[in-house]
């Protein structure tokens, strides 16, 4: 860490790296490193140990760790609280924040708190509808959508003002991210929608899980045609398949997720976890070759144990240390 603080970035790096947050993730991306982020799902309960156990498995195998915000509308330990545990362990969280459960007051308040606690990366999401979760009768909030949330947080950070216009003295310095699903409809609108997210403030993008690499590549062609890969860092989402059942579930039950028949057939033939890992490695290999892909985002849902060998076998080790200073320059 000492070395990092004293390292002097070149003039070129300085020029291209106007740091918003100084997070590890932001610095590595701005240095042009191929990054790895990994998802950590908080427990359905108050077990701090579960977060610690998962964090210990993932430590050293990714550059930052996404903490989901009651994913699929199921109640889990809060993203910010879990993020604090990670920070205490010396790991860098990416806080996920959805518009499903908080209005503009709650969102801004929680984000001010997250910044004060030391969180530097924020992924802004609209969020799943409560219908899919364990409290389907919950009143959905959706006061803002993800694009509007991005613009609110950007204004808090860059203009030091709340959505109401009220000035704030100390701004939350977040590296801002958004998600995009290249597989949803209308397909032709997906790159344009990404452009809106970037215009609103997104600096990094984590995509929906890619199984259909061809379709993803088509989307990336549209993204590059609009020059969006130069305006934001695009991290392609991957999830290793644990079983044939999971592959089928992903194909048939997860809206906006495309699993090609070829992958189902492979899982049917071998019926093993190793086949799922092999498929995932092949996908990562293909994704790395696509121009404009700045990293991968591994979402090993309740299977964090697989992440180390995935990252290792994909020759993505050791994870780099950023050379530029962590002090934000914006």
């Amino acid at each position: 860490m000492d070395e990092e603080k004293t390292a002097k970035p070149s003039a070129e790096v300085q020029e291209t790296s106007r740091l918003k947050s100084g997070s590890n993730l932001e610095r590595l991306l701005k240095e042009g490193k191929f990054v790895v982020t990994a998802e950590l799902g908080p427990p359905r309960g108050a077990a701090r140990e579960t977060v610690e156990r998962k964090a210990n498995i993932l430590r050293g195998y990714a550059d930052a760790f996404n903490i989901t915000d009651c994913q699929t509308s199921v109640v889990r330990m809060s993203s910010i609280a879990s993020g604090v545990i990670l920070l205490e362990m010396g790991l860098e969280p990416v806080i996920q924040m959805t518009c499903r459960d908080r209005n503009r007051i709650g969102l801004q308040s929680d984000l001010l708190g997250a910044a004060a606690l030391g969180m530097k990366n924020l992924l802004c999401l609209t969020g799943d509808h409560p219908k899919f979760g364990d409290h389907p009768g919950a009143k959905p909030v959706f006061d803002l959508d993800s694009i509007q949330l991005l613009s609110v947080v950007k204004a808090m950070r860059d203009e030091k003002r709340l959505q109401s216009g009220t000035k704030i003295e100390v701004e939350p310095r977040f590296f801002l991210g958004a998600a995009e699903n290249p597989f949803a409809d209308p397909f032709a609108f997906r790159a344009r929608r990404l452009a809106k997210k970037i215009e609103a403030g997104a600096e990094f993008i984590q995509t929906q899980i890619v199984y259909n690499v061809e379709r993803f590549a088509q989307w990336m062609t549209a993204v590059r045609a609009m020059g969006l890969h130069k305006k934001a860092f695009i991290l392609a989402g991957v999830t290793p398949l644990k079983s044939l059942g999971m592959a089928r579930y992903m194909k048939n039950n997860v809206p906006g997720l495309e699993v090609p028949d070829e992958i189902i057939a492979r899982m049917e033939k071998k019926k093993s976890k190793t086949e799922g890992i092999d498929i995932c490695l092949e996908i990562i290999e293909k994704l790395r070759k696509i121009e404009g892909v700045a990293g991968i985002h591994i979402m090993a849902v309740e299977w964090e144990e697989v992440v180390p060998q995935l990252v290792e076998r994909a020759s993505l080790l050791p994870r780099p240390t950023p050379s530029i200073s962590a002090v934000p320059t914006c």
Binding site: D128, H129, I147, A184, D185, P186, F189, R193, K196, G256
Partner: peptide, 15 residues
């Protein structure tokens, strides 16, 4: 379902 104002969410499929 989410009263979105900025385009379809990731769950728009086949219309």
């Amino acid at each position: 379902a989410k009263s979105l104002l900025n385009g379809p969410c990731g769950g728009s499929l086949g219309g």
